[in-house]
Design a protein around this nucleic acid. Structure first.
Lengths: 192, 192
DNA sequence: CATAACTTGCTTGCTGCCAGCAAGTAAGAG
DNA sequence: CTCTTACTTGCTGGCAGCAAGCAAGTTATG
């Protein structure tokens, strides 16, 4: 179907030329249609970008759920980082496009800003729950503030991906290992 | 001088309307000149944005140097986070504009991309040195990889700022405190 | 001291590109 | 033969970027 084709064309163009360099006409033509179809289907450039973002985000969510399974606490968070690392290795283009869009969404003129903000909040909520469950099992120190820890964890993930986007040569594998360690140590130790 | 005025107008427009919503004509007129002066002075929109970014980055650098002083090791990193927190409180608009631009620079079509990448590397180099000095004083565990620790630290800072841009209501103060703790714990403890 | 040549700081007119809209075509389904 | 679905084409307005020009100094020259 044309939507799928256009989404794929959009991803490759986004990775090659970025958001500003990607034109609706270019997407239409690369996917074998006319210059006008994209607008007709997705309403606007923002609409298309939101669709691209959301479809990759859905794929990411599926992967995380698959990897985390029924795990909680430290193991759950570590598996999220595992899924992240795997995503970087398996689908660098998709991840790149998604984060390109996500970072662009801080621009007040980006119409899918609210979308991203909501998704971020949902993500933190899931992380918070895993920390709380870890505390319930006595695995994570009671002094840890689950919401705060979740927010910090999410920040590290986002920041790491930003750095990877700017400079793909950073030692992603080693950083992944370091994160796994930090998660275990920081959560098991006690703090205010 | 007109450059200063236009830079200030650009910052306020960036914060209000974002990059796409900020027009060169708008900047010229808000600063009391004609619609064409900005292009004439800075050559292009990218040239202007690079100038705005660099002038705020210079201010940030000055602040960090002032706060860190001759400190090294854990204290140096903690003071960087202090400077960050202070910057968020004192100059949210400037910081916001700078990070808006910095995140936008991952877009391959952004011409000042190289600029930002270079700055990021310089930042990591400074952080690495502080960690190494901490190891020389025996304060930081020898097993810590200074470059890796620096990269992770930088990621946390960038990620936190991204999250703050998306949602200014996150508990910045508490996260700052949590970071200070993590820095001390993670670096003093031993690891592979 | 007067005027000509040049510089600096800024404005205005124009062009090309792109998003978005509106109208239209083509082809299959009922 | 009409309705729907999938797609195309023509057009408009807005913006970046360029080029030409103006106005108010400043320096050089006899």
């Amino acid at each position: 179907m044309s939507e799928q084709l256009m989404t794929e064309a959009a991803v490759s163009l986004l990775v090659e030329r970025g958001i500003a360099g990607t034109t609706l006409a270019g997407i239409g033509e690369r996917s074998g249609y006319s210059r006008g179809l994209v607008t007709h289907r997705f309403g606007s450039k923002a609409g298309l970008l939101a669709h691209v973002h959301d479809s990759i985000a859905a794929e990411w969510l599926r992967r995380v759920q698959g990897v985390v399974g029924r795990a909680t606490g430290v193991a759950a968070l570590q598996r999220v980082t595992d899924a992240l690392y795997k995503f970087i290795v398996d689908e660098p283009k998709g991840l790149r496009a998604m984060y390109l869009l996500r970072y662009a969404s801080i621009d007040p003129s980006a119409e899918y800003r609210a979308n991203v903000a909501k998704l971020n909040k949902a993500h933190v909520r899931a992380l918070t729950r895993w920390v709380e469950e870890g505390q319930a099992h006595g695995e994570i120190a009671a002094e840890v503030d689950p919401g705060l820890a979740a927010e910090l964890f999410a920040s590290v993930v986002d920041g790491l991906l930003y750095r990877w986007l700017v400079n793909p040569d950073i030692p992603v594998k080693e950083l992944h290992g370091l994160m796994r360690q930090h998660i275990a140590r920081a959560l098991r130790a006690a703090q205010t």
